[in-house]
Design a protein around this nucleic acid. Structure first.
Lengths: 242, 242
DNA sequence: ACACCAAGCAGCAAT
DNA sequence: ATTGCTGTTTGGTGT
């Protein structure tokens, strides 16, 4: 274990990406507490001092420390002990390694950034630019207004009545209707007007949410999120082209 | 690349955990669309066919496929091409690898499951068992009741008045108050009673949420989530003992 | 720093 | 399978 400890410490200090496949146990305390008994896992230490412990299944790490953690490697009783600490939030994770299957590290270079589309913001933009998606008389006024007390996706008017549009890129649930209700009520209060229209714009809506929508006199409009990448900032290619 | 393709395919078929450190690009389409240019990354393929692409920083994978995806490995123009597909939701991810820094795989065995404490459910249980945390006259009735129209953390009574308690393990925000409001209103409607008490139980609460709470006649009670593990199911040890 | 909200949220439980 | 909701949510943005 001694040389392993040295190699590990050196790789971390050297800002390499470390892959440690091992049998280990993990103890965590901080925002919660947890214990994980002995088993085979991947311990991934990134150059930014993010530490991830992955079980052989699932998308998420079973334990982790956010970037910037302090990492110490010790050796005791033939075990490798990886101690991670962070302040704000104060967190502590200890990985005790009793068997190493493989340890390797690489210096990685990656300057690229993910380009993606299909978010709720993209949807809001699409509605702003194509107001008829909401209704014949809908005239958009403001896009993605983040105010002190909420975030209105699209604000517009139908005739002389203000209309709040809440977008959801997936099936709208109770939460979406509640959000809409909050924004509508705030507008009514702040503007001192009785009537404000509320619209949920989403590809679909759950039954309960639809009922709640009706109870409050709001309406639902089917809108699909736009799925194309703006790769060249000029030429947009539809998803299906790929 | 040819032998690499064989090794990779074999490891995947063999349900091993595959670690591929490489220079690659990634294209994804499904719930959204994304493109990621050339760079050095870790491609992690788990036995359950979860696929994760990790950049050298950050906690989350930059691209991924959920467990159970179909994975094909091809070779073209000296590049390794990993094609992942899933139905429901229909998703597609292609990792094009032009340079392999390392490729290894291991058969992992991990039967352990994470034991943790400090969740909202733990909080609700604590309140149920220590009702005075909410108030002198609070008598708990039901714990974590999932009704058709919402999920009530703790339901109780103060005198002859029903009381709904909404727990948050962290600082309570507007969402918590709205949730509470929905449950209270539903109860009032279904039971046909005028008065139902509402309580937000959390370590702290935001200013806006506190105001909203007052507007609706609800109250806030300071409660910290319980941070101890029930390791033996009999003997509880406090976090600080470790 | 705080507050609020979206996420290709993921994962879980109950319907 | 759908619905609703928590999470050591993470991550981003505006105040």
């Amino acid at each position: 274990m001694k040389d392993l400890r040295g190699k590990l410490s050196r790789s971390i200090r050297n800002k390499e990406m470390v892959l440690l496949v091992c049998n280990c146990r993990v103890d965590y305390s901080g925002r919660a507490v947890s214990a994980l008994g002995w088993g085979d896992r991947l311990v991934l230490i990134k150059p930014d001092h993010t530490v991830l412990v992955h079980k052989p299944d699932g998308r998420n790490p079973v334990n982790w420390m956010a970037e910037g953690s302090n990492i110490e490697v010790e050796e005791s009783d033939g075990s490798l002990i990886i101690i991670c600490d962070s302040v704000n939030p104060r967190e502590h994770m200890v990985v005790t390694v009793r068997k190493v299957y493989s340890l390797e590290s690489n210096k990685l270079k990656d300057g690229e950034v993910l380009v993606s589309a299909g978010s709720e913001a993209d949807m809001a933009r699409m509605i702003y630019e194509n107001p008829s998606l909401i209704g014949e008389s809908f005239k958009p006024v403001r896009l993605e207004e983040q105010t002190k007390h909420g975030f209105i996706d699209v604000l517009g008017a139908e005739g002389s009545v203000l209309t709040v549009v809440e977008c959801k890129r997936y099936k709208a649930g109770l939460g979406a209707v509640q959000q809409l209700r909050r924004y509508v009520e705030r507008l009514q209060k702040s503007k001192g007007v009785m009537k404000v229209n509320g619209v949920v714009a989403a590809p679909s809506i759950t039954k309960n949410a639809m009922n709640m929508l009706g109870d409050w006199g709001y309406r639902f409009v089917v809108v699909e999120p736009p799925m194309y990448l703006d790769l060249d900032k000029s030429e947009q290619r539809r998803l299906e082209d790929y």
